[in-house]
Design a protein around this nucleic acid. Structure first.
Length: 284
DNA sequence: TACAACCAATACGACCGTGC
DNA sequence: GCACGGTCGTATTGGTTGTA
């Protein structure tokens, strides 16, 4: 029995995204195609992979077992493709990213790169976007994923909507200044939040100003106020409160993948492609 | 090498079951 | 009753294989 990688990819998407429809959207296929692909996979493995619970399709024991193997097979597939695309790479890549992406699936992508190119040394910096851009400009980093506009002439990787987030039980009384949980200056999210509130003539106060995104999330989880972030990796227990408190729209923020062009670095070129694919795949 | 036959994957529309 | 999510049947498309 040879398992079809495309079908395994569909299986992983259907389970991770909690539905055939969402998997279809993610894979740019129709729900019918996903349904038929998974049915064919069930016939091939000779066991049901999903069972219906109400309107939902949940994985059976066989589905869970196959899911674990599917992840490993897809991971191996990615590593094989990656290794073939960049044979004989060596040297070092100094890569910087904001906390939001360090908490998402990006470290997994970096680990895949490291396994596929054992001769390449990867140094990773997790810091604020403004700091990372400065380090890139100084030549201290080779590749930087950061929020906000940069000097890099290449178009942004994406433009992400910025939203307000808070604990579901956080309340905001009418007329009360909006307690803001923000990173210190310079920060594009901080500026967007303050500008939007000023424009809407909503009173606000800084309830917490920190250099750490983790501190912002902790304060939000404790119900100390609201924060403005892009919907990249929102911790469990926090929710979007744009509508609940009728907060002003925050617009979009650029996500830039910038590279140090002053030195030739094939490994950085290669990692850039991989990060680009991973981020685009994650953001849909 | 060109062409026909076959097969698998996919899209689309109709329909069904479930939850609100 | 309506919306949503999934299944089924059919048509289409693209790739593969066999044959002249």
């Amino acid at each position: 029995m040879i398992l079809d990688l495309a079908a395994l990819q569909t299986l992983v998407a259907a389970i991770d995204l909690n539905g055939f429809g969402k998997a279809a959207e993610h894979l740019h296929r129709t729900p019918g195609a996903v349904s038929q692909q998974l049915k064919a996979l069930e016939e091939k493995v000779g066991a049901p992979l999903f069972r219906k619970v109400g309107r939902q399709q949940v994985p059976t024991d066989a589905g869970e077992v196959l899911l674990a193997f599917a992840r490993r097979l897809l991971q191996l597939n990615d590593e094989a493709a990656l290794a073939l695309r960049g044979l004989h790479l060596d040297g070092e890549v100094r890569f910087g990213m904001p906390q939001d992406f360090a908490d998402s699936g990006l470290p997994q992508t970096l680990a895949t790169f490291a396994r596929a190119h054992a001769a390449v040394r990867i140094d990773i910096s997790v810091d604020r976007s403004a700091t990372l851009q400065t380090q890139l400009a100084r030549g201290a980093l080779d590749l930087v994923l950061a929020f906000g506009e940069s000097a890099d002439p290449t178009p942004p990787l994406a433009r992400l909507p910025v939203r307000w987030f808070a604990h579901p039980e956080f309340t905001l009384q009418r007329g009360q200044p909006v307690p803001l949980l923000l990173l210190g200056n310079p920060c594009a999210f901080r500026q967007a939040a303050i500008d939007a509130l000023d424009k809407a003539r909503r009173p606000w106060r800084i309830a917490l100003s920190s250099g750490s995104v983790s501190a912002i999330w902790a304060a939000a989880a404790a119900g100390l106020g609201v924060t403005a972030r892009a919907d990249v990796h929102i911790p469990d227990g926090l929710t979007c409160v744009d509508k609940a408190f009728k907060l002003p729209r925050l617009g979009n923020i650029a996500l830039q993948l910038s590279q140090n062009r002053s030195r030739t670095n094939a490994a950085a070129d290669h990692l850039r492609e991989l990060v680009q694919e991973a981020v685009r795949s994650r953001l849909g």
